[in-house]
Amino acid sequence: MVYDYFDKYIFTCEMYDEEADKILKLILNFFPFDNSVQVIDPEKGKFLLRRYQIPTLNLATLQIGNIVNIFSKLLLITDCAPLTHRTLFKGSEHTFALIKPCPPSMHGKIITYIMQKGFRIVRMKNGKVNKDFGVMLYRNLAGNEKLPLIINYITSGEVIGLELVAPYAVSKWRDCLGATDPKKAAPGTLRYLYGQDQLKNVAHGCNDPQDAAEMLEEYFGYAGNLPRIPFSATYKDCTCCVIKPHAILDGNMGAIIEMITTSGKFYISAMAMFSLTHANAKEFYEVYKGVFTEYEDMSIHLCEGQCVALEIKSEDPSINCVCQFRKLCGPRDPELCRQLYPETIRAKYGKSILHNAVHCTDLPEDGEREVEYFFKLISVHEN
């Protein structure tokens, strides 16, 4: 796409002003021609930042609900101007996708496929669904003699629910799935690649936007203070891994999950996507305050976009899961990893000490605590 020099996208943002102890309502203008931004305080009619080029900023990070870091000032994007919305989000839809019970070694491949097809994953978690959920998911098959068999299958093991966003996401996701029977699915579709038969055909797609909205609420919603589909975390004999925002934006989330599930040493017992506030991130990393000079920058990055928290358990319960999983991740410095431990996660997907792909628990006694922080504390805050 060729941009005119004066083309710009307009976003409304919120920023906490510590000195005034209040939330400021701001305007962020983004100029794609040269990746420059300006920030305006409309109440005072003045610039907080005159037009300045920030090469690392791009449209992938300028999503409603994301936090962007402008010279250490954190701006929460709350909305955008109508013309910006029509230009950037034309035809944008949300749909619900369900990865059916299948070998965990396939999960990373499927997630990579989804992201490579241009979908943005905005919510994700694994879990087990009950018969009532199955009946609602396949209500269009009411009366079909195969329905009990289908419901028995999707309630037989772990599933992964995802909220996907893309232009015309509902129909696009169904096109990506391919025909119900993998033998009849077009080459390159998900079911053609990974499906076994009409029952074990990898994933489910919704029929229309209303169906998608209802299933999203059913899978990700809450009944009172409890999630309708409970988190599957065990909080026992585990370690915590957090896939950082940059790794998700770079499209590496699926590859990292695949490295873990195919290691032969570990399995993912719980996973979910979270959006952290700056206060949440600082609290989670508090053990590093005064220890790492990057503490503040680490906290800022963890809330710059969505992250994925994983509860990791060892295939061999007799070993120390925290210590052994750190070996798979590698040292904090990806460059050191590439020289000494080239097969580690950070060697393959890290870019710097700050953007080093994943966080992993350091101390054996902190594994359960860090998992609880996400799957108990943060999940309640998000409700």
Rank of each mutant, 00 (worst) to 15 (best):
S171M: 08
S171T: 01
K172F: 06
K172E: 11
R174N: 14
R174P: 00
R174I: 11
D175P: 01
D175W: 06
C176S: 12
C176L: 01
G178R: 05
A179T: 02
T180E: 12
T180P: 02
T180V: 01
T180R: 10
P182G: 12
A185I: 00
A186P: 08
P187S: 14
P187Q: 13
P187M: 05
G188F: 01
G188D: 13
L190K: 10
R191Y: 13
R191E: 01
Y192H: 15
Y192G: 15
Y194R: 12
Y194C: 14
Y194V: 11
Q196M: 12
Q196H: 14
Q196F: 09
D197E: 12
D197T: 00
Q198M: 13
L199Y: 00
L199K: 10
L199I: 02
K200D: 03
K200G: 07
K200C: 11
N201F: 09
V202I: 00
H204T: 00
H204W: 02
G205V: 02
G205C: 03
G205D: 05
C206Q: 08
C206Y: 01
N207F: 03
P209V: 05
P209D: 10
P209C: 08
P209L: 03
Q210P: 03
Q210C: 09
Q210D: 10
D211T: 01
A212P: 00
A212Y: 04
A213H: 00
A213N: 13
A213T: 03
E214Y: 03
L216A: 08
L216T: 02
E218I: 05
E218C: 11
F220A: 02
G221F: 04
G221T: 04
Y222E: 12
Y222L: 14
A223D: 03
A223R: 09
G224P: 04
G224M: 01
N225Y: 02
N225M: 05
P227Y: 05
P227G: 10
